[in-house]
Write a protein that binds this DNA or RNA. Structure first.
Lengths: 413, 413
DNA sequence: TGACTTTGTATCCGGTATGAACAAAACACG
DNA sequence: CGTGTTTTGTTCATACCGGATACAAAGTCA
């Protein structure tokens, strides 16, 4: 019953008019001036002007007073559109193996302030979430900005609709921890101003990386974007379709770690052997290079350092090429199924791509069915703290859907 | 440049108002009365009434004069909405291994008239397309209906944006045949009345099966629908996301035939071994059952007949269970990647599901990562001629997006 | 300086949906 | 059997968003 109601209410919820699309264009950096806003929205100059004026009145963007003519252009120069300097922000929280990081993120994915806490990996998720939210609340107080929502990134699959972390592998958390609820509770306890209604979104960190890169990084402009990344253990995937994260009907899509990439490979806890998870993560790379993981630094750091600094070494190079081949096989399988128009790689996979871009592209083209036709562009991630920015995107989404919610938030806060 | 323009024009094209969504609701059988139309659209009764009146004026739907009260309800009984009896149709053409089939398809996926030609499998696609279109043109003349467009289904991957058939495996067609252009040419040559502008859409038949089943069959109501089917040789897949077919950035998504389901399996022309394509199609089944394909009937028919009529036979049953296990492994892989909320099976796979539903569901649940949480519903396809109806859906789409196009078509025709 | 090009604004207008009031068609119940 | 209740459908005035047009502004180019 509630499920039905939900699909219904979202059916025609296209926000009010062109405000949302306009803000999204500015947000993603695709509307530097009112002129291009006009053409991007496909509306008349009159409407684009009105919409820009309204966004300015809402305190979300600013218009420069004295436009400078771009060289070599005719006609009246465009007034440029900027994201408001002291505009509202959202609170983003990322939990990872070594602790947490929180940030205030403005429109355009701009990190306004950030801090982190590390060392403590408590088995109690409520505890670290509360600590992180308290830190964020402090940042918010210091900044004096209006806060419109909050988002959380965790290194685990997150099941919808309840927001439970199903496999918080390298956090000492219980499987099925209700992270969304705990996050909301922590926000309520800390009385973070402004985060009363449109708050509390959580997601897998690879998903959020993909979302952030799609809007502000290497994935900008792609329609169907596939992201594959390996952070600590295992391999994660994410897919952005038509500007929206596709997380599947229960938020569990793109669990790509168990694609078979080496039939004679190592056994995997899933019962199969040669899964991407055990063949193309940092531990697999260190093992293939004949190194044993040291106590210093994360597995990811040890692996990427090795890859970047000792790629001349024959054993390291051989290990790199082995992993590239395995990864390429997995990506090719995904290309056959998803046919994305761009692929971006994060974590260890980004380092593998940068170590030998041509090899990876060749493997993917060779093993994907229609690879001949040009092949899919494969790019490294470009943003700092992309999962954090992605968590912020979740929180921004209601505002992008209908910018007028900031008015309600102002009334409330 | 053109690519950019294209994404731009489609950005805000949400049709005119609520007409399109309303027609889509009637089309998919989700709006039996004006009252539910009101709630489904999320508009006021006034608007729903006006919209229904306009659709009636366009000749697309009718409203019954004397509503009969449903038993056990209070209040004024609803007038029911019907799809207009003599409303417009679209022309649907399906090419398959044994010939072609054409149909006039009304709203609601109703096949108004159909005919087929078989026996000829000419190597020249233009020839059979012309023959099919001529047959359709005849149907249209006889029916006296208005025609709003045409759609084509071919048993091959179809590459966007040019509409080329990449692997017309069991048609003796050249790879890369420009089927869309040839179809358009055939339509123009036959001077099919009404098909002047919004015409000429072509697609892979499994994709179109999924689309048809999503709107009128076993997939109705699903948000993310995965369809897997095996017709003649090989295995095809298709995905409907949020009511729209996801065919990937170049129309080549869901080429699921090369998922590895048996590492020690038979070699596949793709270079790997044990691909779904060679492990779970009709030929594989006949082989596993120790039968050699006969000259009578298609491979699909031979395989399904065997499965349905001789499942008591131990060797047939063993072959069935083997294929179910292989298929289940492939589907589980897709579930991990796509996390659909429903799966429907066509062709041989439908017969396998019906032969032993529990086994297939158990295999999928066992091998998919989060299968414990209830598992995905797996259902057989239910429509007759579903690829044909799906081709019609392609042609109906412009009308569903903006029903007012029928006016333009009337002016033109 | 004047023609041209492009951007931005003011004003009017039309279409779509809303809201409230009213009307219609059934059932429930004394 | 008539009256109230419930649900559905329609009418009408109204609000709002975006389109179209004309006009103004701010630059380049000759």
């Amino acid at each position: 019953m509630d499920g039905v109601t939900h699909t219904r209410t979202t059916r025609l919820e296209r926000g009010r008019g062109a405000l949302g699309p306009a803000l999204e264009l500015v947000h993603t950096g695709r509307a530097p001036t009112r002129a291009v806003l006009t053409s991007e929205l496909g509306v008349t100059r009159a409407t684009a002007g009105a919409v820009a004026a309204e966004l300015e009145a809402l305190g979300l963007i600013t218009v420069d007073a004295h436009p400078t003519a771009a060289a070599g252009t005719q006609g009246r120069p465009s007034h440029r559109l900027f994201i408001a300097d002291q505009g509202p922000v959202v609170l983003a929280v990322q939990i990872h193996a070594d602790g947490y990081r929180v940030a205030l993120v403005g429109l355009g994915g701009r990190i306004v302030a950030t801090t982190s806490g590390c060392g403590t990996i408590p088995a109690d998720p409520a505890h670290i979430l509360a600590e992180a939210v308290r830190a964020g609340s402090g940042l918010l107080r210091d900044s004096g900005r209006q806060c419109l929502g909050a988002g959380l990134a965790v290194p685990s699959a997150v099941a919808e609709p309840d927001g439970e972390a199903l496999n918080p592998l390298h956090l000492a958390w219980p499987a099925g921890a209700p992270v969304r609820a705990l996050f909301l509770q922590a926000l309520a306890d800390a009385k973070v101003p402004g985060v009363t209604e449109h708050v509390g979104f959580s997601g897998n960190d690879v998903n959020l990386t993909a979302l952030a890169e799609h809007r502000h990084g290497a994935g900008r402009g792609a329609r169907d974007l596939l992201c594959v990344a390996s952070g600590h253990r295992g391999v994660g995937g994410a897919l952005v379709l038509d500007g929206r994260l596709h997380s599947g009907s229960s938020g569990l899509a793109l669990e790509v770690g168990h694609l078979t990439v080496n039939p004679e490979g190592a056994p995997c806890h899933c019962g199969s052997r040669g899964c991407l998870d055990v063949e193309a993560d940092p531990l697999a790379f260190l093992g293939a290079a004949g190194r044993t993981p040291g106590p210093e630094g994360s597995l990811l750091k040890q692996a990427t350092d090795l890859l970047r600094e000792e790629y001349a070494d024959a054993s390291v190079r051989a290990a790199g090429e082995l992993l590239i081949d395995r990864l390429g096989l997995g990506i090719a399988g995904l290309v056959n199924i998803l046919n994305p128009d761009r692929i971006i790689l994060g974590g260890l996979h980004r380092a593998l791509l940068e170590a030998d871009p041509e090899r990876l592209r060749a493997v993917v083209a060779d093993r994907s069915l229609w690879g001949r036709s040009g092949g899919v562009p494969i790019l490294p991630c470009t943003l700092d703290h992309n999962a954090l920015v992605g968590a912020a995107e979740l929180a921004w989404q209601p505002v992008l859907d209908d910018p007028l919610v900031v008015l309600e938030s102002e009334r409330a806060g």
